[in-house]
Design a protein around this nucleic acid. Structure first.
Lengths: 180, 180
DNA sequence: TGTACCATGTAATGGGTTACATGATTCA
DNA sequence: TGAATCATGTAACCCATTACATGGTACA
């Protein structure tokens, strides 16, 4: 495993960044499919530096503040490229507390189950609306060799995922109502 | 957190089981939304026993083999029921190595990207076929108060999820072809 | 001058996987 | 009698989160 490593290398393959920038990227551009806290990123950058896959230069911001501006090394690019071309076996199905709850919901009254389903649907509907807003920021489909095109594809994936969740939850609600 | 605890309590709320049975259940009925290895389950059962939420009786199978047959206690039922009725905040988006890879795929040749997308589509298509087989085992929709109805709902969820994945991957493949 | 944000780290803890370790039962 | 499966556990390690800890910069 050790996928975080490649997330970082992939970002640095595009441009020089600080640990803080990488942390920001996890909260924004990578948000839909990866995440990491700064407490994980800084140690990882340290070990990548020791492994010779990245390097840094100190930059002074303002008067005193030292920023470490990281860049990828040729060895790092090589490692990233190998990973990028490899077909990785999917890890098991993601854990989902809501589905676990629903799986055991024959043990609670029907109205309570409907309440849980309704709340879940509301959350996904809201999330879907946000994603549609993000999609509307695109001015047409970017060209395929542009990294904006990748942004576009993963955003489409997030939208289809949320749509499927909403669709499923609506079906469940209908079924519960029809069969009670 | 500590959701595994409730997965176990939920199973024991239905029937008495051994640690091994619980382990099996994780690989089968819970597979679509939860999983745990036996090395995690046995210690958890120990701590649940210490907390008074479950208890066990020794059963002899064959001549010698001692099985621990666990059952839920009233306190355990209480704890499970509280969890079951609570609306839990969803943990962040699940990590997805493929999407990470796709996000960085502007760095590789177009044919390679299409190959990755094709392989991923194939895997999801196969998985979808399996799930449809599982659905066909149902003889109509079970009544809403039956635990088979819960099985049915989570299976529908798994199917919609896979359908969305296939749909998305097909869209990506089309887009890549159209814009190259 | 205060607040939001930029910037970097470590420590403790929890959750989870892999590997180690053992032995009984069932059925062909 | 051998293989698949049932059955229970521990140890080492890895990944990740929360909390601890510090301080500078930009801007209103």
């Amino acid at each position: 495993m050790g996928v975080l490593k490649y997330a970082i290398l992939g970002l640095l393959n595009r441009q020089k960044m600080t640990g803080y920038d990488i942390s920001r990227a996890c909260d924004t551009s990578l948000f839909e499919f990866w995440n990491a806290k700064h407490s994980q990123i800084y140690p990882e950058l340290k070990s990548l530096t020791e492994a010779g896959l990245v390097e840094y230069e100190i930059e002074i911001a303002g008067n005193v503040l030292q920023k470490k501006l990281y860049s990828i090394t040729p060895a790092g690019r090589e490692a990233f490229h190998t990973w990028e071309l490899t077909r990785h076996k999917p890890r098991g199905v993601p854990k989902d507390e809501f589905r676990l709850q629903l799986f055991f919901s024959d043990s609670i009254p029907s109205e309570q189950r409907l309440a849980l389903l309704g709340a879940e649907l509301e959350a996904h509907t809201e999330r879907l609306a946000q994603l549609h807003d993000d999609l509307n920021k695109f001015d047409g489909i970017p060209p395929a060799d542009d990294c904006a095109f990748c942004d576009y594809m993963v955003l489409l994936g997030a939208i289809k995922r949320e749509e499927a969740s909403c669709d499923w939850l609506e079906t469940c609600i209908d079924l519960c109502r029809a069969r009670t």
